[in-house]
């Protein structure tokens, strides 16, 4: 008796699974109106989704830019106050100081220094250029 009941339950469950599987794999055919509706709706969903994402990214970007400006602005304001008498010039790390240019364009000077460093096979920050003068 109980075996027959179990068999019935199993066969019923199998039928239900088969029906569910059939429903899941059922193919849809669309009439003209629904076809157009799905196409427009799909395009709209992509547009709305990406527009909202754009808004979120713009907001995050603005927050980031504002945050980056704040710490940069604060030290700038402090140094502006402190540097009223005479601001000591900050040298680039490894720099030997300024090079004096006489009748020479800074661009040409940079080129000359790079060529000299290359010819000597030495890094630029290990060389000291005192001045560069155009010979006329």
């Amino acid at each position: 008796m109980s075996f027959a009941l179990a068999e019935e339950i199993v066969s019923e469950a199998t039928e239900q699974v088969a029906e569910a599987a059939e429903a899941a794999t059922k193919r849809m055919t669309l009439d003209m109106g629904n076809n157009l509706l799905y196409a427009v709706l799909g395009y709209l969903v992509v547009f709305v989704g990406l527009t909202l994402l754009m808004a979120v990214i713009i907001i995050v970007g603005k927050i980031m830019v504002a945050k980056a400006k704040k710490p940069a602005a604060a030290p700038a304001a402090e140094t502006a106050k402190a540097a009223v008498p005479e601001a000591p010039k900050q040298l680039a790390p490894g720099s030997a100081g300024d090079v004096k240019l006489y009748d020479t364009d800074p661009r040409d000077a940079a080129m000359i220094m790079a060529i000299v460093a290359d010819k000597l096979q030495k890094p630029l920050n290990e060389l000291r250029f005192v001045s560069i003068k155009e010979v006329k």
């Binding site: 992509v46 547009f47 989704g49 990406l50 527009t51 994402l53 754009m54 990214i57 713009i58 970007g61």
Partner: peptide, 14 residues
């Protein structure tokens, strides 16, 4: 990220 408006072009191209 630097030009989020690009997302509109990505959407349009679908």
């Amino acid at each position: 990220i630097s030009n989020p408006k690009s997302l509109l072009l990505g959407a349009a191209a679908q």
